[in-house]
């Protein structure tokens, strides 16, 4: 089938005059079936998952949980790596994360902004403190966000 029939669009039979192959209907190569099957599987996954998400996915505004992952002392302060997880039904944009560290009567506030946290997904960042967050009490929360679209 490297040759394309020049005329007579509709009938595949017209080209069987030249080549010795008598079959009026051309064989579909196995590779064609295989790649179409891969395409079908991917399309079904994408459509199925999106439909499932649209129908049964979580509803409601973004609900963002912030938790501490790890504290690392560095030469430039204590780095508290935090993770934000969106339990809500909508993605959030420009999520402001704030951490308030209270230790020995003093308070220090640090914060950063995450561009996007999709629903059911996580994003991470770091807060930097002068004192060790493990020694004091660290309050983590998302203080605000913009709607993603």
């Amino acid at each position: 089938m490297a040759q394309k029939p020049k005329a007579a669009s509709r009938s595949p039979a017209s080209r069987s005059k030249g080549p010795p192959k008598p079959a009026p209907v051309k064989e579909t190569p196995a590779l064609e079936w295989a790649s179409a099957a891969v395409g079908l599987a991917l399309a079904a996954t994408a459509i199925g998952f999106t439909a499932w998400d649209a129908l049964f996915g979580a509803k409601g505004p973004p609900a963002i949980e912030v938790k501490l992952v790890e504290v690392t002392p560095t030469a430039h302060g204590y780095v508290a790596q935090v993770e934000a997880f969106n339990h809500g039904g909508e993605p959030a944009a420009q999520v402001q994360i704030e951490g308030v560290l209270s230790s020995q009567g003093a308070q220090q506030t640090s914060g950063f902004t995450i561009d996007y946290v999709a629903e059911g997904s996580k994003a991470s960042g770091g807060l930097v403190f002068e004192k060790d967050p493990r020694a004091g009490e660290l309050m983590l929360r998302a203080t605000g966000f913009a709607d993603a679209s």
């Binding site: 079936w33 179409a36 891969v38 395409g39 079908l40 991917l42 399309a43 994408a46």
Partner: peptide, 13 residues
């Protein structure tokens, strides 16, 4: 249909 599906697969991959 086979071509369209294969094309979608190619695009997705």
């Amino acid at each position: 249909v086979l071509d369209a599906l294969a094309a979608f697969g190619v695009g997705f991959l």
